[in-house]
Structures are given as C-alpha cells and as structure tokens.
C-alpha cells in the first residue's frame, strides 16, 4: 500500500470549495486527506462545530458524499444508527450489499468533552466505523474557549492570561490512550502536516475489523494565534517537540510512526503560537518547565508501551 499524491489527484474531490472555514484552517485539509485516502465511498456523520456550520448552511453543502448532522455530542451514535440500518436493509434484501465506509468527523470538544459518552458507547458496541477527531484544542466555533484537550498554560477566552492565572491551569486529557483502552482494532494519532502518515492511518482504519479512531492535530490559526500560512509549520512543531506524538495502536500493538519526532524542546512549538506568548515572552518559566516535564514523562511512557509491544511481537 503506497500512497502517491499524483495518483490521488485523479480521484474526484468529495469535499468541495466555497465553504466558510477560515483562511488557513487545518480542518478541511484533514478532511480532504481522509476522503482522498479512503478506498470505499463514505457515509459521513458530523458533530456540530466549525466544520459542520461552515460546510452545510442551507441550501448549500460543500459535501459531495452523504452527510448527516444531528447534534454536537452524538455523531458516533448517529453513525451507529446508519451502520445498523445498512446491516438490516441488506439482511432484509431491501438493498444490495456494497462496500461503504462509515465515517465521523468531530472536534475535540465533541470528542473529549460533550460527546465522550456517545463515542465510548459506540466503540464498545463494535460498530464498524472510523471516528476522526479534528483536534484544535478548544471550542473554536463558539469563540476559542478551553476544552479538556487544551494545553496547560494556553490562553483561551475562558482561560485568559491574567495577573494571577497563566492561562489554562490543567493538563489535558489523553484521549487517544483512553480510546486505546477500549481495545478496538485501530487507534492512532496523526497530524495534518504529515499527509502520508495520516492517509496511511486512514487506510489501516478502513481495513480494520471493527471501530477505528484517529486523533488528528489540526492547528487553528485564529485560536492559537498564528499567521494563516503557518498552519503546517505549527503542526510540524507540535510533533517535533513531542507535544503531539505520532503513533498507532494496531490490534493492541503500540508503534511510533514517522520520523523526526521529539527532537526539539517544547518552547519551540509554544513560541510559534501567540496563545502562549504570556508564558514564552518574559513570562512564568515554571509553566514552560512543567509542560516540558510532562511531555518528557508521557513520551517515556509511550516509548515503553511501544517497546513492550515490539518485544511481545518478536517473542510470538
């Protein structure tokens, strides 16, 4: 399975243009990459969020594939209903079986916070679908509020940097590892700047025998405070600093993917985003140090899981 960009350009674009997402937004890039990588035609469920409101304003739609939006928190459940209906329609002989990929896009708010229960339930029930979290670490659609995916120290409109509080006070939830604990066939972290890694993971997710989850970092130029042309650079810095490790858990086997990870201090990534300017420029150095300490610890833990997997694989 090799992915060649020039070949991929021959596939008809399933997500068009004219949508109202901001200039430089990473979300439509990730969506286009996911759709381009799929082998089967998709049926998509969307959570409420930037992607949904900016692409489905009546009477128009940016989508050229079937899409269902119901509410903020329940996209995983919506797609379970679609998948179940498909099975029953085929069983009843009311529809010919055909290859289809059931796909969800939800933001980090929809995934980590409000839709956590719905996603967990759908994964446990084993519906065959791919859940793609477009993670921009906050509620950008409502105006850049903090979510449980927001990094420690980040400025948001509900964690403003003030005289006594340096932005967000808490460490973020490790959603990818929480999902991995559901023991589904495929779980991965990806980043929007690394199209090849992301698309390879989409192909694996599509081929998985059960639910799959891909958590994609999609930097938000408005919310993270960087220039619109820096989206891919910021995504790369998140990976190179170890703030967003690229890895997969395939049938329980943990594996780092792609090279060039964690070769810089976190300060390099933080400095690329003005949401951290209060701690990176004459600010509280202890916050940066704390972020570095936690990133180092999580990286070490991740490496151990990968090494244990490698040992178990070589022994079996």
């Amino acid at each position: 399975m090799t992915l060649k960009l020039r070949e991929l350009t021959e596939k008809t674009e399933q997500f068009g243009s004219g949508h109202a997402l901001c200039a430089g937004c990473a979300e439509p890039v990730a969506v286009r990459q996911v759709l381009a990588a799929l082998v089967n035609p998709p049926v998509v469920a969307l959570a409420t969020g930037c992607l949904e409101v900016a692409t489905t304003r009546f009477p128009d739609t940016t989508w050229k594939v079937p899409v269902i939006h119901s509410a903020f928190e329940n996209a995983a459940t919506t797609i379970s209903g679609v998948e179940a209906a498909y099975k029953a329609l085929v069983r009843k002989g009311r529809m010919e079986p055909r290859p289809l990929t059931f796909l969800v896009f939800g933001g980090d708010g929809a995934t980590y916070d409000i839709g956590f229960q719905w996603l967990s339930g759908a994964l446990e029930r084993g519906h065959k679908f791919i859940y793609v979290c477009l993670n921009n670490e906050g509620y950008m659609n409502t105006g850049i509020q903090r979510s449980s995916a927001t990094l420690l120290g980040a400025w948001t409109t509900t964690t403003p940097a003030g005289d006594v509080r340096p932005g967000k006070l808490q460490w973020h939830k490790d959603m990818t590892r929480i999902i991995a604990a559901h023991n589904i066939p495929y779980v991965a972290q990806a980043a929007v700047h690394n199209w090849k890694d992301l698309m390879t993971k989409v192909r694996k997710a599509e081929a998985a025998d059960g639910p799959a989850f891909i958590n994609v970092i999609t930097p938000c130029d408005r919310g993270w405070r960087f220039d619109t042309d820096k989206t891919m650079e910021v995504s790369r810095l998140m990976v190179e600093s170890g703030l967003w490790p690229l890895y997969e858990v395939e049938n329980g086997v943990w594996r780092m993917t792609g090279g060039g990870q964690k070769r810089r201090p976190v300060i390099d990534a933080l400095k690329s985003q003005k949401r951290f300017s209060h701690i990176t420029t004459n600010g509280d150095e202890s916050v940066v140090a704390e972020i570095q300490r936690r990133v180092d610890a999580e990286w070490e833990s991740l490496q151990q899981l990968c090494e244990m997997s490698a040992r178990a694989e070589s022994e079996s």
Binding site: G16, P59, T61
Partner: peptide, 10 residues
C-alpha cells in the same frame, strides 16, 4: 441540502 458541492457558487 440536495445539491452536492453547491457551496462552489460562493
């Protein structure tokens, strides 16, 4: 919305 890709008019 019944016209796939119709935001292209925007």
């Amino acid at each position: 919305e019944i016209n796939p890709g119709s935001t292209e008019r925007v």
